[in-house]
Simulated scan of single mutants.
Amino acid sequence: MPPINPPTLRQRRLGSELRKLRERAGLSSTAAAARFGFQQARMSMIEAGRHAVSADRVRAMARNYSCADEGLVDALAAMTGGRTRGWWDEYREHLPVGFADLAEVEHHACGIHACLVIHIPGLLQTPDHARAVFQDAAPPLRAYEVEHRLSHRMKRQAILYRDNPAPYTAIIHEAALRMEFGGTATVRAQLQHLLSMSEMDHVTIRVVPFAGGGTFPGTGQSFDYVFGPVPQLDTVQLDVAPGCRFVDADAELAKYRAVAERMEATSLDPVRSSDFIHGLLRGVR
């Protein structure tokens, strides 16, 4: 298969997981390449996600690396093939690095836990709220940059409306609910939208109130914990100034999984969270 340039996050992840299997088997890149009859340079490109690999090749690698985890091997095999363009690819030249990758990760997610301190989750924002957030960015965005980001965010939300959507849980701090982006009408519409979305079977919204502590465990950093088909393929997306940062190291996944669990434990249950948002809505004048 031909080289891939540039690789998507999903392709880079497949390559890194194959590298992990090789390293656990105690094989050098050169030794592993020799087993498959090609040059070390090709192995390096495969593990960097820059050279497409077939499902059969992935299964052969897993056998040679003595990987007996059938679930993981099946999941890796499903990630193979050449680059398949998604709607998000049209934004790669217009948005910061990582935005298109985020849409791709969400598209393939088996579940998402969004943990937010200051902002409403992007997948639950109304267009007016999202536009107000982008217009408040520092340094200021140009009008066309705002519209590019808004369009991208709204298209991302399609995963919540497709057939057989993945479970989505948003754990939102009261601080985020009280932010007044866009003025009173926008605030009211945003809170009403959250209540409407919470009625969907696959969407769960939980609020962490100021009362009773109201703090998030850890640093309080907002993040999405994205579940893969197997735990080894989970991904954490962090909000950072340039755009998005993705984490998939085993130790980091364990840390953020624990933080998400503690956040959920400090939050109100879905019914009380809905009541809480209703109370905030009544107070908006």
Rank of each mutant, 00 (worst) to 15 (best):
R257K: 12
G98W: 02
P167Q: 13
E199H: 11
Q192K: 10
Q190D: 06
S29W: 00
V53R: 04
D74I: 11
G213P: 05
I277A: 03
G26Q: 01
L123V: 04
Q232W: 04
A260D: 06
P217D: 07
Q11T: 00
T84K: 15
Y144P: 00
L72Y: 10
L177M: 06
N164I: 03
T235V: 15
I172V: 15
A100F: 06
R35S: 05
P167H: 08
G122P: 00
R262Q: 15
P209E: 09
R142K: 14
S16M: 08
L281M: 13
C67K: 04
M1T: 04
V203I: 15
A260R: 05
G81M: 07
I120N: 05
L150V: 12
R131Y: 09
H51Y: 11
V284L: 00
G220K: 06
P209L: 05
T84S: 14
D224V: 06
L280S: 06
L21I: 10
F227I: 02
M154H: 09
A249M: 11
S54A: 08
H51C: 00
R10G: 02
G111R: 04
H107Y: 05
E90M: 03
R83E: 10
V271Y: 12
V203N: 02
D89E: 15
R131C: 12
A48V: 00
L9G: 03
A132F: 06
M45D: 09
H94N: 13
S44G: 09
D74C: 10
H173S: 15
L177E: 03
Y144C: 08
I172M: 05
W87L: 06
M61Q: 09
A211E: 12
V117P: 01
G26K: 01
G182R: 01
P270V: 07
A34R: 12
L268N: 05
D250T: 14
A78S: 14
P242A: 06
F181I: 02
M197E: 11
A175M: 12
R12D: 02
I172F: 03
P139A: 13
K255A: 10
A254S: 09
P209T: 06
P217C: 09
D201R: 15
A130L: 01
P167I: 10
Y144F: 11
R149L: 14
Y168L: 14
F134V: 04
R272N: 14
